[in-house]
Amino acid sequence: MKNKYKILVCLLIGLGGLGIWFFSDSSKNTNQAQSLSVEITGTISDKKAAESAFTVLKKNIQAVNDKDIDAYLSTIVPSSREETKKEMTPFFEKYSLKNELLSFEVKKQDNDHMLIEAQQKSQNLGKEKYRSHIAVANHTFVKEGGEWLIQETVITDTKFIQ
Rank of each mutant, 00 (worst) to 15 (best):
K58C: 11
M114G: 04
S132Y: 04
K28L: 11
K143R: 09
L11Q: 04
L115A: 04
I116Q: 00
N60G: 04
K86V: 13
K98V: 05
I116V: 09
A137P: 00
E82Y: 08
V106Q: 00
S24C: 11
S35W: 08
A71T: 15
Q123T: 14
L36Y: 14
N60E: 14
T140S: 04
V154L: 10
S96A: 13
F160G: 02
H139E: 03
W148H: 00
L149A: 00
I150S: 02
S103Y: 01
G19W: 08
K86Q: 13
S45H: 12
N29T: 09
N29E: 11
D157K: 11
T30R: 15
Y72E: 07
Q162Y: 07
L125K: 10
K4A: 15
K47Q: 15
N3L: 09
A63Y: 05
K159I: 12
V9Q: 01
S35E: 15
L11Y: 05
N65P: 06
E152C: 00
I69K: 05
Q34I: 13
H113I: 07
I161Y: 01
L101M: 13
S74L: 11
I150P: 00
L73Q: 08
L8C: 07
H133F: 02
I150F: 00
I134Y: 02
E82G: 04
I150G: 00
L57R: 02
S45V: 15
F54Q: 09
S96R: 12
V56W: 00
L15E: 01
M1G: 12
E83C: 05
E144F: 01
T84N: 10
L57I: 10
G145S: 02
L36M: 12
I116G: 01
T156Q: 03
H113D: 09
G16P: 01
I161E: 05
E82L: 13
K159F: 02
V56C: 10
G19T: 09
Q32C: 08
S80G: 12
Q32K: 13
T140L: 05
K6A: 07
A33F: 12
M114F: 03
F23A: 06
K159A: 07
I13L: 11
L8V: 06
V136K: 05
I7E: 11
Y72N: 08
I76E: 05
S37N: 11
R131C: 03
S74T: 11
